[in-house]
Structure formats: C-alpha cells, structure tokens
C-alpha cells in the first residue's frame, strides 16, 4: 500500500513501535470491558486513534502502557455509559471470528467438565458486566492482567486508595455471584499465598 502521509514519519514510527506490543493486552482488557469481540476491537481501534491524536502529550520515557491504558479506560467507561441501555447480542460461534472467548479451550475436556467450564465462563462474563465500568476496569487490570496498584491508579486516573476500594468491592461482588463454583473449604492448612513472582521462581 502506498502511504501518502509523509510528514513526520519518525513520530508515526515511534508511535507504532510503542503501541504494537500492547495491542493484544489492550484487546484482552477491552474484551473484558465489553464482553463482545466486535465491540472490543472497536474500542481498541478508537483508543489507538485517540492516542495517536494526543501523542504530543505523551512524555518520552514515561510509562506508555499506563498512558494508553488511561485512554482505553476513559473510552471504555464512556462507551459503557453510552451503551448502558443497549442489550448486547449473544455470541455466536461462526466463521466470522465472532467466537466466544475461551471456546478454543474446549479441546480435551470431558463433557461434564466442559459444561462446568462453559457455565462458569458465561457467568463470570455476566458477573463482570454487572460491575460498574469504573470497578470493572480495575478488576480487569488487577486480577486478570496483574497490574500493580500504582500502575492501575495511573491507568485509570485515580488515587491508589480508590483502586484498592474499587478492587475490594469488585472482588466481593464477584465472590457473591460466582461463589457457588467454589468448593466448600475443607482445609486446615495455610493456602499457598507466596507472591506470583516467588511462585514462578520456585517453578524454575
């Protein structure tokens, strides 16, 4: 394709290089915010356009991931508010790529496990969508993407204390809605709560 845009290519190249490694992560978060693969792609495209338009405001050497997540977060919350009364269409498994996330992982599961898996996944997505968008983005970034509190605060644009309280409320709501999937506790030992980094070291 011939690009007619010639001016300031270095800026565009720099933007592309910074952006490309984060697209998958942006998409995942967008999917968790929208529960719709098409909407998620729309959201990421919109985020990238907004980011490009305001790239002048990005300070070189600062945290690009937090910066672009701030834009995604704002766009996602705007989008969620705008579509608050829109009922979303259920996923269809078809050849267009509009496949329910996680469907690929059916392979190798017994029918019983598969049913449980599908059921939990569906309910988990529904429970996520019932969280307010402000809480949902914090839950997505913390539990699912393992951002630090500080980075979430930068990404969402709120104090760390607010991140903690939103996360706590989100967790509580998810526990209430999905608690039936957890087995009754039979333990009398201390659960393995070493930090993830330590656990990864242990694997090595």
């Amino acid at each position: 394709m011939v690009r007619l845009w010639q001016k300031d290519n270095s800026t565009r190249d720099e933007f592309d290089q910074l952006l490309r490694p984060h697209v998958e992560l942006l998409y995942r978060t967008a999917l968790r915010m929208t529960a719709d693969s098409y909407l998620a792609e729309d959201l990421v495209q919109e985020t990238c356009l907004r980011a490009f338009r305001s790239f002048d405001s990005f300070k070189k050497g600062s945290n690009f991931r937090a910066w672009i997540y701030r834009i995604l977060s704002n766009a996602a919350i705007d989008n969620a508010r705008r579509n608050a009364n829109v009922s979303f269409i259920e996923w269809d498994d078809d050849e267009t790529g509009n496949v329910r996330p996680g469907a690929y992982s059916e392979i190798g599961r017994s029918p019983e496990v598969h049913v449980l898996h599908q059921s939990f996944m569906n309910d988990a997505f529904k429970a996520m969508m019932r969280l307010s968008p402000e809480i949902r983005i914090v839950v997505a970034l913390s539990i699912l993407e393992e951002f630090s509190y500080d980075e979430i605060a930068q990404s969402v644009g709120c104090p760390v204390g607010t991140v903690k309280s939103r996360l706590s409320r989100g967790r509580k709501q998810l526990q209430e809605e999905l608690g039936e999937y957890l087995p009754a506790n039979k333990n009398s030992t201390v659960p393995n709560l070493r930090p993830v980094a330590d656990r990864n070291k242990a694997k090595d």
């Binding site: 490309r20 697209v23 998409y27 792609e41 996330p101 898996h117 526990q175 608690g179 506790n185 709560l193």
Partner: peptide, 30 residues
Amino acid sequence: NSIMMNARLREELKDDKDTSALWSRIVRDL
C-alpha cells in the same frame, strides 16, 4: 476462595486471540 477465584477468572476469561488482523486495521485507521 480468593486464590481459587483469582485463578479461575484468569483462566476462564483469558483470550489469546491473534491480533494481527486487528493491528492491520489499526494501521489503516492511523
């Protein structure tokens, strides 16, 4: 329960979609 909930959410809500087509559209947008 918290450990299990975290682990299950991470496992079930993951989506390792190939984003190359999405990236192409982003480039076209830009």
